[in-house]
Computed example of a mutant assay.
Amino acid sequence: MNEWPTLLQRAQQGDKQAYQVFLKGVLPFLQMRARHYVAAQQRDDFVQEVLLTIHRILHTYQYDLPVEPWLSGILRHKYYENWRKTAQQQRESLSDDDSWHPQVALDEDEQYAVVSRMLAPLHPLQAQALYATKVEEFSVAETASLMQRSSSWVKVNVHRAIQLLKNELTEAEAATGASDE
């Protein structure tokens, strides 16, 4: 792992042997991390997609940055890309079914506005931690790394944010119930 940045830098400069050594060295890491994203029977195909993506975006790696977060980002991106494709296929199959009538869907701007209103009572850092862990589904460790905080800080602030939002919801329901009477 310590030699990965050097190997990637040399690969970016056209060193095919360094690129081959990097790919062989990174393969176990990708297979291990892929367990978090896909079922065992899909793992080989998923890792192949990730390797193709690495090949396609090799030029984007910055050798002064750690390789693992770059690779983890690629894994996460491929997972969400595959998830979106599956969701789209399911939506298309559901749209053929006349018995299913979804609620009015919100466009992206409306979704953003709703999420922003929900997170408004929170301190910006709490909102960021909650959004990263619960909406983007980053792990606590990934969120801590992104926010340059400790994992325990992330856990505490996500918990506090959830409690605060629960209290806000309870108060809003109580106010609505009192005004209806």
Rank of each mutant, 00 (worst) to 15 (best):
L30C: 04
P69E: 01
E171R: 12
I74G: 01
S95P: 07
D15V: 03
H55P: 02
V26M: 02
A127S: 00
H59W: 05
K85F: 08
P66Q: 01
V26L: 05
A161M: 03
P124G: 06
S93Q: 15
E3H: 15
K16E: 13
D180M: 13
A129P: 00
L119W: 03
Q88H: 14
Q126T: 10
Q148W: 00
R160P: 08
T86Y: 05
D44H: 15
S150M: 06
E181V: 09
L51F: 10
H77G: 14
Q48H: 11
A105L: 14
N2E: 15
E49T: 03
R84F: 11
V38H: 02
T86W: 13
E142I: 00
V104I: 11
R160L: 08
E168F: 04
Q9F: 06
Y37P: 02
Y63W: 06
A178T: 13
A178F: 07
Q89T: 08
W4N: 04
Q128W: 00
K166Y: 07
W100S: 04
A144N: 02
P28C: 14
Q88G: 11
Q126A: 11
P66V: 03
K16Q: 15
H55C: 02
Y37L: 07
G14D: 09
T60P: 05
Q128S: 07
D44Q: 15
Q17S: 14
R117E: 14
Y79C: 04
D64T: 08
K134I: 04
F22M: 04
E168V: 14
V114W: 12
D180W: 11
M32A: 15
E173V: 10
V154E: 04
V21R: 12
P28Y: 03
H59C: 08
Q48G: 09
K16Y: 03
W100R: 14
E108A: 14
E137T: 10
A113G: 10
S72H: 09
A132K: 01
Q62F: 03
D15M: 06
M1N: 06
A39I: 07
D98Q: 10
D98K: 12
S116K: 14
K166E: 14
R10Y: 09
E137H: 09
L30E: 02
A105M: 14
L106M: 01
L146K: 08
L71Y: 03
L8E: 00
P66G: 00
H59S: 10
L94C: 00
